[in-house]
Nucleic acid binder design. Structure first.
Lengths: 349, 349
DNA sequence: CTGCCTTCTGACAACGGTGTCAGGGAGCAA
DNA sequence: TTGCTCCCTGACACCGTTGTCAGAAGGCAG
């Protein structure tokens, strides 16, 4: 048997009007809960709507409607299945739902082409606003949307070549906290595995790491700062390579969640998880149950998502104040892996 | 400084036509790559498009366009931030992108009201099709969309009261595999923690568990089969309660990813992770790095997402064959927690 | 009864595009 | 030159809805 019954044409307001024996505009009034419809008429129209299974075509409506809002926003993430991005997605959805707004979520995969294509696709669909995890050296191409009054909020990474609202974690500071935490546990040979350096966030975290070392009078041993680690496999391979050196690191900062997974996997693979210290950026679901537990700098993706969505809706609703930068607090969660002391015991405090 | 420059009105085709000195329809031809436009004219129009930053209003176009496709689909998941759902989301996005289609993803939170509201919202936005993780006892309310020819594919859970395509894992069989695996390691006192029993999937997994026990001549000890475990906290509490009994289970099946997290947390909390066997449904990111590693029945969410999206697009493109049920294979991944033998050693094979 | 106000109601244009169709010009064979 | 194509092009109606506006009907004070 066919799963689709005869695909009748969708009913329109005209059909409802005809069935209820009223004018088109009267149906529109009932559908939009406008005043000046008698109780009797309203009821007749509602019966007709139910009988036909009518649902208004929202897109057609917003064509004429004041301001032309589509009640739709676009959300561009690295990857919708990255837990960090997924948490943002969820928070944005919650805020949007309260505004009767639907969310187009999409993955850019940190690919400039794809990012632009998504912006264009969302633009053609006339989203009311855009929340973007920007990648690449320049978001000037978004100037066009800006000029047409499409509100824009950046998350996780500040835009380049454009003045706009941003919501992010203070990456320099928190990377510094991670590194200082390791220094405080006696480490001086600290490796750093960072994401694609084209991403400002990745550069900031590396900067925070380097500054913390410098502040403690330490320097980055040659080859200890690895950038462009874009997968768990690569992270594991890089860390293994470092551990194989004659002068290996005694601690490592893995500056993004996928990298942390690779790093932890490498340590466990070598059975070194209890003698090489590790601090990761971003929390992970089972991080507390490993042995040792993984110490992390936990960003607050739910708050990042919530704040960015609130900011976006404020803009959509007309706020034209100066561009804001919202810094969302993170926190250090100590679980063991980051508190492993340096061998040789030159431990402070 | 204001982040939004003066919000000029968005340019329309009319504006482009005026600037290029051509008719409206000619611009439409250029935008849609239709034939019968001279190279010279085409170029003038393209220059005008660039100068104005024009982007066609896709929604307005689909109003008149043949068939009225919006190139948009709706995806209703439990929660976009559940890793299993997020993986599905990603796979659906990949298929949709290849078809120039945008995806509305949303979380139903296993709430009937919300599920209906989402269907209604997507329907008003005239999605070309819907992929739904159905909750609740009856999806008959979707009959209306069906009658209007909106293709519908169910994932993870078969629809009730409706004949439609479904993509899912054979939950009865794989729950049986999990339980049999524990029986094979000598266990006879096996607890089962399952999700909300209003969900068919949860019932199927429990059924598979019970059948496997029965097939081995075992029965479900009183109180060992716990349903409606809807959070990690609840799962932990329930498992602790069972372990506190005078006749505790020696093994447990946690029949969903969130439940597995709670169950594992309870075992680690009690220091019992190495003597109570556990098998979870759905894989988890760091499951291999725990001690012991978590043995799981790993569904294939990427394939579930891919297959459901392919099915949906086939329907959208006119396939009106009989409703199909697509069973996506899962696999048993042994990592240690499921291979802990029963104490007392009455171990078979 | 008249005049004025209020409440309901629907005709009509408009939103930003696409489908249809007819007309004008160029090219070519007879 | 005429007649017939073929290629371009734009006028126009229309998609499904909402904003505007004018008119009808009813209520009430004078």
């Amino acid at each position: 048997m066919s799963p689709q019954t005869t695909a009748r044409r969708r009913p329109t307001m005209r059909d409802v009007a005809a069935l209820a024996g009223v004018g088109l505009k009267t149906v529109s009034r009932v559908v939009n809960d406008e005043p000046n419809v008698s109780g009797d008429t309203r009821e007749r129209v509602e019966r007709a709507i139910d009988a036909l299974g009518f649902a208004p075509n929202h897109g057609a409506g917003s064509l004429r409607r004041e301001g032309g809002r589509t009640q739709t926003i676009g959300l561009i993430l690295d990857a919708v299945d990255n837990p960090f991005s997924a948490a943002i997605n969820r928070a944005v959805e919650t805020v949007a739902t309260a505004r009767q707004t639907a969310v187009f979520a999409a993955s850019s995969d940190d690919d400039t082409e794809r990012e632009r294509a998504l912006v264009a696709a969302f633009n053609r669909r006339r989203v009311d606003g855009l929340i973007v995890t920007a990648y690449g050296p320049d978001q000037g191409y978004l100037q066009n949307e800006r000029d047409h009054g499409v509100p824009l909020v950046f998350i996780d990474r500040p835009p380049i070549g454009l003045l706009a609202d941003v919501v992010l974690t203070d990456n320099v500071a928190w990377a510094g906290v991670a590194t200082r935490h390791l220094i405080d546990h006696g480490h001086s040979r600290i490796a750093f595995l960072g994401d694609d350096l084209a991403i400002p966030t990745a550069r900031d975290r590396r900067l925070g790491h380097e500054r913390a070392l410098a502040a403690a009078g330490l320097e980055v041993p040659d080859g200890f700062s690895v950038g462009n680690v874009t997968s768990a496999e690569l992270a594991a391979a890089e860390l293994e390579r470092l551990l194989d050196r004659p002068d290996p690191p005694t601690a490592v900062v893995t500056a993004q969640n996928v990298i942390t997974i690779g790093g932890v996997r490498a340590l466990h693979g070598r059975g070194r998880q209890s003698d090489v210290a590790l601090i990761g950026f971003d929390d992970l679901p089972l991080a507390d149950l490993l042995t040792p537990g993984i110490t992390v700098i936990a960003q607050d993706p739910a708050e990042i998502g919530r704040a960015s969505a609130e900011r976006l809706f404020a803009r959509i609703e007309g706020d034209d104040g100066p561009a804001e930068t919202i810094i969302v607090p993170a926190r250090l969660i100590t679980r063991g892996s980051g508190e492993i002391p340096a061998p040789g015991g030159a431990q402070s405090r």
